[in-house]
Amino acid sequence: MPEVRIERLAKRFGATVAVDEVSFTVEDGSLAVLLGPSGCGKSTTLRLVAGLETASSGRILVDGKDVTALPPPARGLAMVFQSYALFPHLDVARNITFGLEVRRVPKAERQRRLAAAAALLGLEGLLARKPAQLSGGQQQRVALARAIVAEARLCLMDEPLSNLDAKLRQEMRKEIRELQRRLGMTMLYVTHDQVEAMTMADRIVLLKDGRVEQVGTPAELYGRPATLFAASFLGTPPMSLLALEDGPEGAVVAGSSTCVLPGRPGRGRVLGLRPEAVRLADGDGHRAVVEGVEFLGADSHLTCRIGSERLLVRASGLVDLAPGTEIGLDWPAGAVHLFDAGSGRRIEAG
């Protein structure tokens, strides 16, 4: 199983820069997720790796070998498309073995691999059906099976779950991850769904406007977002971001006199707090006004206001506070994220 290295890869379509000097590495046998909002260049990056688009500049290395100029079939990879791209005139079995037939794999071997893949994905009863006679989830499995029988070293997936309903998506997420681990595939997986990325990835490559915003494990991206964008993109509900101002004793939340960072400058900085890091303090703590409470069963989300800034607090169980109530909030020093408002970059302690 190969390691994939992307080096300063770029793709321009006329004046638009779809992928802008992107670099990252997918380790052998791991699953990397390309994550980002719509139009950030995820699909284009994936298509560049697949060879379906030609790079404007940069290199793609698979196992140290430069494949940037190779045609798609020579790259030894399989791909699952968002629309599955099943051949409508072929039955499930022929769809799965299409590539093997094209590559003239002997019939016995084809049958063996087909049977194995069908068993793995629970498609045994559907082999004679045409794609139109399958549900979305079944079609998805066929597409997966087609990728698996190729026994490709590298598997690319472009939002393979976006056409499925929430429940099925959750199941397939687990299944794909399990399959990837069991077969030891190297996988590059595109999604715009941060939950999918968090739950599946060994590594997340966060993209924005064609550029890499941050690369790291889900825990790293969640725990130490490198930019304001990363901070706001990951986590449900997302991190609260509060503009800071200079106060007499240190940084204060804009529009208030609440000093949150004693002895430190505040102007031009943004304070980030995860909702689950903020606690309701009994006595003192930072003064805040409750604006609304959302009860979700296991916990409640409180929208609070400090000065002109809003922040979200996640408290367990039912919290019964009327809007307008003044409360005290508290958070550990370690839960504070600081960002430069201008560049959006994280500011390390200091």
Partner: peptide, 14 residues
């Protein structure tokens, strides 16, 4: 015919 079919076929070595 969706162009993605040809892309899929190409990736499969066709």
């Amino acid at each position: 015919i969706p162009p993605v079919l040809e892309e899929a076929a190409r990736l499969e070595g066709a």
